[in-house]
Computed example of a mutant assay.
Amino acid sequence: MKRDPDFPLVRNLVITLFATNGHLIDMGNRLVRPAGLTTAWWQVMGALGYAPAPLTVAQIARNMGLTRQGVQRVVDLLAARGYVALEPNPHHQRARLVALTAHGRAALEAAEGAAAAVDQRIIERIGTERLATALAVLGEMRDLILEELAQSATPSNDPTLSIENEE
């Protein structure tokens, strides 16, 4: 396969995304530490806070591009601290639904409030039009990557696709 001369653009974007993600995690930890959270907790709580209904651990993991095991560990910690509650799932006996509690919603609001000043600086520097373009581009990249992952996964080589593990 012949490489497109613009190939370095993709690679540089990926490297920049990796670096940005690392810095985003560091900044997130600094911002939400006073609320008693970590970036990982905030990420899972945000997934729940912006969802129209409670989600299973597997749904959170898929939506956020995380491992189910990693999300399960965070959910267990959040549940122990009263940020989330595990509810029966009418569609799956073992895969309970994870829902924010009032305490969790308050902590999520505190985290979002702590991030508001940085969010505002990003809007002011980059502008809403460029942010909307970036969001669209990243969404397209995510969709293409998910398509590639789906094409390369088969039940024989990917144990996460077995029926027993599906929530």
Rank of each mutant, 00 (worst) to 15 (best):
R96A: 07
P52Q: 11
L108A: 08
E164P: 11
N21D: 07
L86T: 06
V57I: 13
S156C: 05
S162F: 02
R81K: 14
G22C: 08
A114W: 02
A95G: 09
L78P: 00
A95P: 05
W41K: 09
A40P: 04
D158E: 12
L31I: 07
L24N: 13
E167D: 14
M45A: 04
Q120C: 13
E166W: 14
I60E: 00
L55A: 07
F18E: 12
P159T: 01
R94S: 11
P5F: 02
G28M: 02
A35K: 02
Q120P: 05
A80K: 12
T101L: 02
T56Y: 03
T39H: 14
P90H: 04
I126A: 03
V74Q: 13
K2M: 11
D76R: 11
H91M: 10
Q59M: 09
L55S: 01
L24Q: 11
I25D: 01
N157Q: 06
E87S: 09
L9Y: 15
F7I: 04
L55W: 08
P54L: 04
T133K: 11
S152E: 15
H103Y: 12
A107M: 00
R96M: 12
R33P: 00
L24E: 13
I25W: 03
P5I: 03
W41L: 06
V84N: 00
V98R: 02
L149G: 07
L135H: 08
A132D: 02
A80Y: 03
A80I: 00
G65N: 04
Q72H: 15
I60N: 01
E148D: 04
R121A: 13
I15D: 11
D76H: 07
V10G: 12
R11D: 14
A80W: 04
L37I: 06
L13W: 12
L131F: 08
E87T: 05
A153K: 09
V10I: 09
L97E: 04
A51D: 01
P159V: 01
T160G: 03
I122P: 01
D119C: 08
T38L: 05
A53S: 09
Y50R: 13
P90Q: 06
A110H: 02
A85C: 04
G127Q: 13
H103N: 15
A53W: 15
Q69K: 09
D6Q: 14
D76N: 12
A132L: 09
L138A: 12
Q43G: 05
V84I: 03
E129Q: 12
G65L: 09
R81W: 10
M64G: 05
V57A: 08
T133S: 10
V57H: 00
Q43V: 06
S152Q: 15
A150I: 07
A150D: 11
I25R: 10
L144I: 10
G46S: 14
F7D: 15
V118Q: 14
V75C: 02
L100Y: 14
D6R: 15
E166T: 15
L149V: 09
A150K: 10
H103I: 14
G127E: 03
L31E: 08
M1R: 06
A58P: 02
L161P: 03
L146P: 05
L161G: 05
D158M: 12
L13A: 15
